[in-house]
C-alpha cells in the first residue's frame, strides 16, 4: 500500500515538474522577443495578449465593478484580461502575486497598489523582463510604464472639501478618515483637503490627525462615536475609503444626530443608498471603477501594440486626458446623491 502511494506521489511530482519546465520553456522563448514590434508579430490573431490586473483586495464590491470594466475590455478587444489580487489589502501579498505573474510570463501587468514603495522593486523586475506595467490610483509610481488616474486629485479634493464646508456652514471642527496612513491617493486628497480648508475656510479646524478606519465600517462607527464624545464642536466627517461614510452614518443614526453632522466621502452608490436617503450621508464622491479597469487595460494594450502615448492619446467615451510625466489624468468624477445613486449600477 505504502509503495503504491509513494510511487503515485513520485509520479505526480515528476509530471508536475515536466509541466513546469514546459511552461517556463515557453516563457523563455517569449522573453527573447521582448521588443514590442516583434512580440506583436509573434502574436497571431488567435494568440491573445495576456493582461493580468492585480487589485488591492479581491472580494469587495468596488473591485467587483473594477473587474466588470476589465471583462468588458477583454470582450471588446479580444484579449485575455483578468483580475487577481490578495484577500486582504496587503502590499506584501501583492508582491507575491506579481512575482508569480512574472514567472508565468504574462504580457502586461496592471496594478492598483496597496503601498507604492513596497511594490517598486517587483514592478521594476517585471519591466526588466519586458512586461508592460500600468498602475492606477498611484501617481508617479516607480516601476510603472504609465499610471492612470480617473480623477484629477486636487480638483477632486476641492470638490469634496467645498461641498463639506458649504454643508456645515464653514465653521466648527472636522475629522478626516483615510483607508490607511500609507494609501497614496487617500493621503494626497487628505493633504489637499487640509490645505484647501485652512486657506478658504479658516474657521474650520481639523480635530485630530487623520484616522485610518476608512476601509472598515465597524471601526469607522466606533471611531465616529468616540470622536463625537471627545470634540464637542465636531460637525463634519470627510471620509476617504468606501467604508468610512457608512460607519460614520451608522453611528449618527444610532445617536439620532442625522442632519446635525455632515458626512461626505467615497461611497459605493448602492451601499450608501439607505444613508443617502435618510440624510445621514450628505453626498458621496467617486469615479467609476469600471472605467479605471477599462482604461488600465486599454493603455496596457496600446503599449503592447508598440504605440506611443502622447498628448493626442485618448480613450473612447472618457473625459479629457492630460499627460504629466508618466501619469495620465482623466477628469471623470461622479457625485452621488439621494436622487441619482441608482443610475450607476454598482
Amino acid at each position: 500500500m505504502k509503495k503504491v502511494l509513494s510511487l503515485l506521489i513520485t509520479l505526480i511530482m515528476v509530471l508536475s515538474l515536466a509541466a513546469c519546465s514546459n511552461s517556463s520553456g515557453g516563457d523563455g522563448g517569449e522573453e527573447k522577443s521582448s521588443e514590442p514590434a516583434e512580440s506583436e508579430e509573434s502574436k497571431g490573431s488567435d494568440d491573445q495578449y495576456e493582461i493580468a490586473v492585480v487589485v488591492k483586495v479581491v472580494g469587495i464590491d468596488y473591485f467587483s465593478v473594477f473587474e466588470d470594466g476589465v471583462k468588458k475590455f477583454a470582450e471588446d478587444h479580444n484579449v485575455n484580461a483578468y483580475v487577481t489580487g490578495p484577500s486582504t489589502a496587503d502590499a506584501a501579498e501583492q508582491v507575491n502575486i506579481i512575482e508569480d505573474l512574472i514567472n508565468s510570463g504574462v504580457d502586461a501587468i496592471c496594478v492598483v497598489p496597496n503601498d507604492a514603495t513596497v511594490l517598486e522593486s517587483v514592478l521594476q523586475s517585471a519591466q526588466d523582463k519586458g512586461i508592460v506595467v500600468v498602475t492606477t490610483e498611484s501617481p508617479d509610481q516607480v516601476g510603472a510604464d504609465y499610471d492612470v488616474e480617473m480623477i484629477i486629485n486636487d480638483a477632486f479634493a476641492e470638490l469634496v472639501a467645498e461641498d463639506a464646508a458649504k454643508s456645515c456652514g464653514g465653521s466648527g471642527e472636522y475629522a478626516l478618515f483615510v483607508g490607511s496612513l500609507t494609501v497614496p491617493l487617500h493621503n494626497a486628497w487628505a493633504d489637499h483637503v487640509e490645505e484647501y480648508l485652512a486657506d478658504k475656510y479658516p474657521d474650520m479646524k481639523l480635530c485630530t490627525d487623520r484616522i485610518a478606519c476608512g476601509e472598515d465600517s465597524a471601526l469607522a462607527r466606533e471611531t465616529t462615536l468616540d470622536l463625537l464624545k471627545t470634540y464637542s464642536d465636531l460637525n463634519c466627517f470627510i471620509c476617504f475609503g468606501s467604508q468610512g461614510p457608512i460607519g460614520a452614518a451608522e453611528a449618527l443614526t444610532e445617536q439620532n444626530r442625522i442632519g446635525e453632522v455632515t458626512v461626505v466621502g467615497n461611497i459605493i452608490p448602492s451601499e450608501g443608498s439607505t444613508y443617502l436617503e435618510s440624510g445621514a450621508i450628505t453626498t458621496g464622491y467617486l469615479w467609476n471603477p469600471a472605467d479605471s479597469g477599462y482604461a488600465s487595460c486599454y493603455i496596457a494594450q496600446h503599449l503592447l501594440d508598440g504605440k506611443e502615448i502622447d498628448e493626442s492619446f485618448s480613450i473612447e467615451d472618457m473625459g479629457d486626458i492630460s499627460l504629466e510625466d508618466k501619469t495620465l489624468w482623466i477628469d471623470n468624477p461622479i457625485t452621488i446623491t439621494a436622487d441619482n445613486w441608482e443610475e450607476f449600477g454598482f
Binding site: V57, G59, I60, S87, T88, D216, S217, A218, R221, I246, G247, E250, E271
Partner: peptide, 16 residues
Amino acid sequence: IKCYLSQQASIEALYG
C-alpha cells in the same frame, strides 16, 4: 453582533 453593529455582512470585515 458585528453584523448588527455595522449593518453589513462581508467577508473582509472579519478577515485579518
